[in-house]
Nucleic acid binder design. Sequence first.
DNA 1: CTAGTAGTGACAATCATTTCCATCTACGGT
DNA 2: ACCGTAGATGGAAATGATTGTCACTACTAG
Lengths: 141, 141
Amino acid sequence: MVGPTDDLDLIGRRTAQRACVVRALIDHGGFVGARALHGILESQGARVGLNTVYRTLAALVGAGRADVVRDRGGERLFRHRPFPEHQHYLLCRVCGLSTPVDSEAVESWAERVAEASGFAEVEHTVELTGLCPRCRSHPTY
Amino acid sequence: MVGPTDDLDLIGRRTAQRACVVRALIDHGGFVGARALHGILESQGARVGLNTVYRTLAALVGAGRADVVRDRGGERLFRHRPFPEHQHYLLCRVCGLSTPVDSEAVESWAERVAEASGFAEVEHTVELTGLCPRCRSHPTY
DNA sequence: CTAGTAGTGACAATCATTTCCATCTACGGT
DNA sequence: ACCGTAGATGGAAATGATTGTCACTACTAG
């Protein structure tokens, strides 16, 4: 299989700005807020409007190429998702380090609850937060 | 057992405004946004500031007498919690109907993940949303 | 009853996100 | 390669939830 389905192909036209945003998101590795990502792009000299950052991230989420979580303040944090599977993360509250977790158990639990409830189109959000080993031994506060 | 530990006792001084907010929250039964609750109070003729609604709800949450979830728009929705146990809900996206769900499985899963990860102070948020049977058969959109 | 502190509320401030809209550009057709 | 146009951009303004400010009020201990 060739390297075909580029993220950019999934979200509309190829533009320099979108390429920048996607690249920055991938490079960042973990979860980032839209504003923070915009800041990173600015510091790299990329001239991309905040608006475009928001739109691109929304498009990625819509295409299933990014995950979203809410931090405590209600801000949305985005993370690139190379594979199309539904995924959950354990996120460090201090440094933002995120590690995917095995979600089998919740998935099947959610399905079971959905069936038993009589509800339709049940979606679930699972967010785990904590202090990663590094931040744990190296308290910055 | 007497009706002892009143919600109001847990959050500071007893004031008419707080009593109104707590009463309205309990009467509402399901999840409500702060602004919506404020609207309900106004329509009842209760003169309570929006600010006070926010503060009272925050105090209830702090005392463990209310649960919070975020709706899709990021708004916080509150629900009175008569018992001190940690609880998860299945929430209707259309009418807001909420039903507590058996959360044993997620709880133990979350614990297991926490232990395996090396993270400390792991907290979890689980939100299930769907269409309740009523809204399902009675599409309003 | 009185003092003192916690609570209140109108208003302004904040903060993330969205909308507007005038301008620009990628790209399929020629 | 050139064009037309739908789609994309970005700056400014709007929105909407939530929080801060601060003068004023009213519980409650003493």
